[in-house]
Each structure stands twice: as C-alpha cells, then as structure tokens.
C-alpha cells in the first residue's frame, strides 16, 4: 500500500485519483484475462506516476519553462512608465535592470498595491475598499516614485539550468509568483511564472 493514504503522488484528493473501478472498467475494455488485481495495478500505477513526476521535475529546466524575450524596465523609470510597460506586455511583473542591463529587482502588481496602501494587505480589493470608503486617490503617492524604490530587491533569480522541482520549491519558500532567469552576468534571459510551472505539469510544453 502507498505510504500516504490521503494523497496520491500527484497530491490529488482521493476522489480525483485513479480508482479501482476505473481500473476494472479498463480491464473489461481489454479483451483477454489479465492476471493482475486492480489493487496491484493501482500500486504499480501510483509508483510509476510518482517516478514520472520526479523525473520530469528533474529534467525540465528553467530554460524550457521561461517566457522570452523579457519585458523589462530601468531602475530610473517612473512607476507610470513601468505600469504602461506592464499593461502593454500584459504581464503582472517585470525585472528592473541597472544601466548595465543586470537584474536589480522585480516589480510586480503586488509592489504597486503595497505602495498604494502601505497599511493594508497588498491586494487589489483592499485598495478598492479603502479608495471607496475614504474617497482618497491612492495612486497619488506613486507619481514621483521610480522603479528602484518600489521594486522587491534583491531579486530572487534562477539560472537557466534550475530544475522544475527546484523552481517550485523556491517559489513556495519565498512566496513569489515569478522570477527572472539570468545569465552569469545577471542579465535577464527570460521570466518563469507560476503559470509556466502549471503548464509544464499539465504536459503543455512550448
């Protein structure tokens, strides 16, 4: 029996896992006698599935997952410019580069929300709620700010050879949703976001 009875290798709820009924149906679909019990088949399947996930976790690298080329902003850009760049590219976070093109930090929607409502939790609805209740324009404090002031720094970056397993662990440890992939000089090669990890898990590889 698998060691963990509550969750399968994919971390799925038991109802969403392969059941013995599924296996029995499949066995009926194949003609001929299979001398394996549904229970044994499930045990083999669970172990093989876990093995495949581990193998994919180690074989898929940041360079396979990342979105490239990178949309980035300069450290001296105003937050207005940053917002425009993000809006045009349709991304929720961009790396902030120094004059030499090296990654200094990352600025995301969450960083904007933090600046707009330094007291509350950085969420869009928090900002909307305060705006509606106080009638204050929360964007005003952002007018004079530069990307370097609002960004999260130092940036959590990835090497192109970081594995899917390492990236997943890093994202949950640091509570981040994206990270720039950088070369040895710290110049950005691409961005990996949580969505990219989901795509890889679902087998949708670019």
């Amino acid at each position: 029996m698998p060691a963990n009875q509550d969750q399968g290798p994919g971390g799925l709820h038991p109802d969403h896992e392969l059941s013995e009924q599924d296996i029995l149906k499949a066995m009926k679909g194949l003609s001929g006698y299979l001398d394996i019990t549904p229970g044994d088949f499930k045990e083999v399947f669970d172990l093989a599935y876990g093995q495949a996930l581990r193998r994919l976790g180690l074989s898929i690298k940041a360079r396979d997952l990342m979105t490239a080329p990178v949309v980035s902003v300069g450290a001296g850009d105003s937050l207005g410019q940053v917002a425009q760049v993000m809006a045009e590219a349709g991304v929720s976070g961009v790396p902030v580069l120094d004059d030499g093109g090296r990654v200094l930090g990352v600025i995301s929607e969450k960083d904007f929300l933090k600046r707009m409502d330094p007291l509350g939790s950085p969420s869009l609805m928090g900002v909307v709620a305060r705006c509606l209740s106080q009638g204050a324009c929360l964007l005003a404090p952002l007018l004079e700010e530069r990307a370097a002031q609002a960004m999260s720094a130092p940036a959590v970056t990835l090497g192109p050879e970081a594995t899917l397993a390492e990236i997943s662990a890093l994202f949950s440890e640091r509570g981040i949703n994206r990270a720039p992939v950088v070369d040895r000089q710290g110049r950005p090669l691409g961005m990996v976001s949580r969505g990219d990890l989901l795509g890889a898990r679902a087998g949708r590889r670019a």
């Binding site: 013995e20 549904p38 229970g39």
Partner: peptide
C-alpha cells in the same frame, strides 16, 4: 484482502 477479483472474460474469449 484489499482489492477485488479481476473481471470475467467475454464469451468469445
């Protein structure tokens, strides 16, 4: 025991 018997095969089989 912890599982069930495999299904019966078809008449053709």
């Amino acid at each position: 025991g912890n599982t069930q018997s495999p299904p019966r095969v078809s008449l053709e089989e």
